[in-house]
């Protein structure tokens, strides 16, 4: 397992590693809740009768489909909402007030590639932190995804990482994995291999290509600017620019505030992108100086949302 070396001694390292295990346990609960063969949520909603076990994620709870239907005129006219379509409103409301907690704590598909990515040494990976405007790509993707009904097409079902994870969970014997279509093969290559194994953090798909994550962060980017909502908060006066948080962030959402190499020179703190942060709090667990934490209240300063937090705090 690829262990990310942290500054601040053994305690910091152990605390961060333990916290990651807690996160993975939470994602595993997400897997049990939403995916076959356990699919506890679906079992609950189908009357605990054991139905909806195989391959029904798509119809019942697939949040991708829920996002895809948000601008569908037909769906609004029919007002015939499935569990997945209703669920996306709940997930969006949570993201507005509490941050993208579905991504940060329940989405097994994102966690799976993050985990698999840790099996590959970091030196073989691309790191997009601070180099690519991930928010712009992912919101562009979200806009394209939402407008697909106007192009007379859709990709909710045929390019679905949730389903591929479900197929993996069901195993080769279920028949789904050996009989993938080209679109699912593309998903597997992008989600698991390119975005998972060979992108630092292991969440390349989440960062760029997940409409469910994109819509949550769109809500979070609005909600986090309100002083009474919950979000990752930054205390710039505590920060020693050690870089631990940058190293451990699976979404590559936290970067040096100045576009430089402050990790070697000692620099002016970090900034968190509200467009990609999933409130997983892994950065907080790796910070030796208590500069980061999840909670209610303003960001370091309300105006610091898109500015380097430390600079905003000084201004």
């Amino acid at each position: 397992m690829n262990r990310i070396p942290l500054k601040g001694g053994k305690d910091v390292q152990n605390h961060s590693d333990r916290f990651r295990l807690v996160r993975y346990a939470s994602y595993f609960i997400g897997f049990l809740l939403f995916y076959s063969p356990a699919a506890l949520v679906l079992r609950f909603f189908s009357g605990l009768d054991g139905k909806h076990l195989i391959g029904n994620l798509c119809d019942s709870l697939n949040l991708r489909m829920g996002v895809g239907g948000l601008l569908s005129i037909d769906r609004w006219q029919a007002m015939d909402w499935t569990l997945g379509q209703v669920s996306i409103f709940v997930v969006m409301a949570v993201a507005l007030i509490l941050g993208p907690l579905f991504c940060g704590w329940l989405c097994a598909a994102g966690a799976f590639t993050e985990f698999v990515g840790r099996l590959v040494p970091d030196r073989w990976k691309i790191d997009v932190a601070g180099k690519v405007d991930a928010g712009a790509v992912r919101y562009g993707f979200l806009a394209g995804y939402l407008s697909l009904p106007f192009f007379g097409t859709g990709i909710g079902c045929s390019f679905c990482n949730f389903r591929v994870l479900e197929y993996i969970g069901l195993g080769v014997g279920s028949g789904f994995l050996p009989a993938l279509t080209s679109t699912y093969i593309v998903v597997t290559l992008l989600w698991l291999v390119a975005g998972g194994m060979f992108m630092k953090g292991g969440r390349g798909w989440c960062v760029f290509l997940c409409p469910v994550g994109g819509i949550q962060n769109a809500m979070h980017a609005i909600g986090a600017r309100l002083p009474f909502t919950a979000k990752m908060r930054y205390r710039p006066e505590n920060c020693r620019s050690c870089g631990n948080c940058v190293e451990v962030c699976p979404m590559r959402a936290i970067a040096p505030a100045a576009d430089g190499d402050w990790q070697t020179s000692g620099g002016p703190g970090v900034r968190i992108s509200l467009n990609t942060c999933i409130a997983c709090a892994q950065c907080s667990a790796a910070c030796p100086h208590g500069a980061l934490g999840y909670g209610f209240g303003p960001l370091a300063k309300p105006a610091s949302a898109t500015l380097p937090a430390r600079e905003a705090a000084r201004s």
Partner: peptide, 27 residues
């Protein structure tokens, strides 16, 4: 650069939609 990134992001699902539609009926 941001506009280009948005445009690339936007084009991806549209292109994927057309590719997927062509493929799913065949496979």
């Amino acid at each position: 650069v941001t506009a280009l990134a948005v445009a690339i992001g936007f084009a991806l699902p549209v292109a994927a939609g057309h590719y997927g539609r062509g493929m799913s009926g065949r496979e």
